[in-house]
Computed example of a mutant assay.
Amino acid sequence: MKINGKIISTRRKELGLTQQELAEGICNQATISVLETKNACDSMKILGEICQRLKLTFDDVLEKSFDEKLRALLAKVIDLTSEFKFQEAYQLLEGISDVEEIENSDLKAEVYYNFGNINLVGFHEIDKALYYFYEVSTMNVTQVMIKSLAINSIGVCYAQKGEWEFARGHFDKSLQLIEENPDFVTKNVSKIFYNVAKFYSSLGDFSRAVALCDQGLELYKQFKSTSYLDFLYYEKAFNLQHLDEEKAKKYFALSAGIAEFNDNQFIIDTINSGQVNHLEG
């Protein structure tokens, strides 16, 4: 198996151990030398004991493929974005040497989508965001959800530009992709329904907005996650204010509870202020 020997060597030195001291009772010194210089180990038992002595995990020392490293980086980008740390997230993406050279089309699409999302939500650079979202919308991907998210986000861009018919067309197309590909639905579906509901709400169609929120919530039941759920409940409550104020209170409370769990101070502060408005998602 392929090992990142540099991590083992660095930790050993941090702990003030020689190769012989690290090997004691586990293996011989030559095995440690091979681990550190040739990045190889034939025994999971030996590697496990070495990791235990160095207070490392297998995940720390096993060499990852480019795709695995990229997935880990994208997970960090998503976490930072959810915490509104857009500049840090963008810097991580900029660290990818050449996006065009990424062979995995799904991962390339995710990189472009995240560039677009940060430009749109974090920096309010609509035209830059549109470039990245259009790139994703034309790519041949197996994960339909990322394409639906990109098309949905194009709708958001056009809505912000006040180009309502272009926005409506892209919002409807993003929903159509979900309807046609139910097996590919992920927890990100809540963001799509949130954006479309917010669009129809801005047009004064509050009943349709609530119905869209309910569709998203119904699909979302299969996921054991609260990611973005606070936004979807907030949007339902926002629209219910125009239809049934008592019900609206219930969903504002649900949104606030989930927001507290998600450490989403943005929604909590908005609800507590009493100045409830459309939120940027």
Rank of each mutant, 00 (worst) to 15 (best):
residue 268 I to L: 08
residue 74 L to D: 03
residue 6 K to G: 08
residue 235 E to A: 05
residue 231 F to E: 12
residue 125 E to K: 03
residue 83 E to P: 05
residue 164 W to H: 13
residue 116 G to A: 07
residue 202 S to L: 13
residue 84 F to K: 07
residue 14 E to M: 05
residue 94 E to N: 15
residue 258 I to A: 07
residue 181 N to D: 04
residue 34 V to Y: 11
residue 247 K to I: 03
residue 268 I to V: 14
residue 268 I to H: 08
residue 39 N to C: 02
residue 139 M to I: 00
residue 207 S to F: 15
residue 152 N to F: 00
residue 273 S to M: 06
residue 75 A to I: 13
residue 232 L to G: 04
residue 256 A to K: 12
residue 58 F to T: 02
residue 41 C to D: 02
residue 72 A to G: 13
residue 114 N to H: 13
residue 152 N to K: 01
residue 210 V to I: 02
residue 57 T to P: 00
residue 184 F to K: 13
residue 186 T to H: 01
residue 136 V to L: 03
residue 271 I to P: 15
residue 257 G to Y: 11
residue 264 N to Q: 08
residue 261 F to P: 09
residue 260 E to Y: 05
residue 87 Q to F: 03
residue 19 Q to G: 09
residue 1 M to K: 05
residue 52 Q to E: 11
residue 131 Y to T: 11
residue 168 R to A: 14
residue 170 H to D: 13
residue 250 K to T: 10
residue 111 V to S: 08
residue 197 A to Q: 02
residue 256 A to I: 09
residue 187 K to E: 12
residue 170 H to S: 15
residue 272 N to G: 10
residue 275 Q to H: 15
residue 218 E to D: 08
residue 239 N to K: 00
residue 165 E to H: 14
residue 153 S to E: 00
residue 191 K to G: 15
residue 272 N to C: 04
residue 92 L to H: 07
residue 142 T to M: 08
residue 153 S to V: 01
residue 196 V to D: 11
residue 215 Q to F: 13
residue 92 L to N: 09
residue 133 F to V: 02
residue 60 D to F: 02
residue 155 G to Q: 04
residue 243 L to T: 01
residue 280 E to L: 14
residue 126 I to D: 04
residue 257 G to E: 15
residue 277 N to A: 15
residue 40 A to M: 06
residue 106 D to R: 15
residue 101 E to V: 12
residue 172 D to C: 06
residue 209 A to G: 02
residue 89 A to C: 03
residue 75 A to C: 10
residue 120 L to T: 04
residue 84 F to R: 10
residue 213 C to K: 00
residue 47 L to D: 05
residue 140 N to G: 09
residue 232 L to M: 01
residue 110 E to T: 12
residue 149 L to E: 00
residue 141 V to H: 05
residue 112 Y to L: 07
residue 73 L to F: 04
residue 242 H to A: 04
residue 246 E to C: 01
residue 89 A to G: 02
residue 117 N to K: 14
residue 185 V to D: 00
residue 121 V to Q: 14
residue 66 F to Q: 13
residue 28 N to I: 10
residue 181 N to V: 12
residue 243 L to W: 00
residue 73 L to V: 04
residue 101 E to N: 15
residue 79 D to L: 10
residue 180 E to D: 10
residue 95 G to A: 05
residue 70 L to M: 11
residue 101 E to Y: 14
residue 171 F to E: 10
residue 59 D to C: 08
residue 86 F to K: 01
residue 213 C to H: 01
residue 25 G to N: 06
residue 50 I to P: 08
residue 44 M to D: 14
residue 207 S to E: 14
residue 125 E to R: 04
residue 195 N to W: 01
residue 115 F to V: 03
residue 131 Y to W: 09
residue 84 F to L: 08
residue 28 N to T: 11
residue 250 K to Q: 12
residue 211 A to T: 06
residue 271 I to H: 09
residue 76 K to G: 08
residue 103 E to L: 12
residue 142 T to G: 13
residue 5 G to A: 06
residue 111 V to H: 05
residue 38 K to E: 10
